[in-house]
Design a protein around this nucleic acid. Structure first.
Lengths: 149, 149
DNA sequence: GAAAACTAAATGATATGTTAATTTTTTATA
DNA sequence: TATAAAAAATTAACATATCATTTAGTTTTC
């Protein structure tokens, strides 16, 4: 669906169109992931934290490390990690070197859940990216990075 | 900043990179608008509703019409309109033809506020779009629309 | 070595996003 | 026409986003 159809106006300059297109594309992505994860009682944010922790391959991360790696910086990592703790998908301990910090790690249960979710999420991602060929994906990446530069 | 630097991992396939790039770009856009509107006690969502109403040039819109035109569909248009009502930026009346519906219109005060906000928002938009030339903007639009198709 | 400054995380308050349930009104249908 | 079904908006309940404040621990500085 073209942006013009969504906002029901044809008089949009190209700059505004790009802005709206980025926001609308993100909205569609979120919607898709939301629906995919919902049956597993997972929010996209919780899923994101789990993935970040897995990326550490066993090493723990502090709260601020996690926050730094989030795409949309959620200042309430504490509360997200609380939810994951209750589901026993992560552990949280006071850091030995610095008692202000927390060491957060993914559990085996968390890793297993990700194993189930991975193909689902991948399928949803590809629903979008399959529409473009390699060259187009590359161009899109470059343009978005330039857009943000 | 490249996506790889944000998530601190170089092993990302191009598909995933595009997904993350869209999400991260949106996040940056939101951040920017949020900061611009905050001094006016306006959220991006409230601003969006105001703009949609202005687009009607005097005609009222129903709740469901507004919702339909929002980029991210917020089912709580009622609450957003409540906030705008309190600030006297919109009016809300029961629709004559169908008493289940509401007629929502922007007030003069609302229009005046938009007049102040317009150049601010435009400047923030251009902070991003000025990085790209016309051709690149056009390509970006086309790729994003294809991505969502 | 004590006070001040800083850092990391948690907590509280308010706004929004999402879904489900409810209320009111209109339309369909038996 | 009475009842059922549908439509539009509101309300309630819960999760998340954002900001400010608080708490606890660490580092700096005098």
């Amino acid at each position: 669906m073209r942006i013009e159809e969504i906002i029901k106006s044809e008089n949009v300059d190209i700059s505004k169109k790009v802005i709206l297109n980025v926001m609308y594309s993100n909205s569609k992505l979120n919607e898709t992931f939301y629906v995919a994860l919902k049956p597993f009682d997972m929010s996209t944010e919780q899923f994101n934290v789990l993935r970040i922790l897995r990326g550490q391959k066993g090493n723990a991360l502090n709260m601020s490390d996690i926050q730094e790696r989030m795409i949309a910086k959620t200042s309430n990592t504490t509360r997200l990690v609380d939810k994951l703790l209750k589901k026993e998908l992560v552990t949280r301990r006071v850091c030995k070197d610095n008692r202000r910090k927390m060491d957060v790690s993914i559990t085996d249960k968390g890793l297993e859940l990700l194993k189930i979710l991975d193909p689902l999420v991948k399928a949803h991602e590809e629903h979008f990216t399959n529409k473009l060929n390699e060259e187009e994906l590359d161009t899109l990446n470059k343009l978005l990075e330039k857009f943000r530069s």
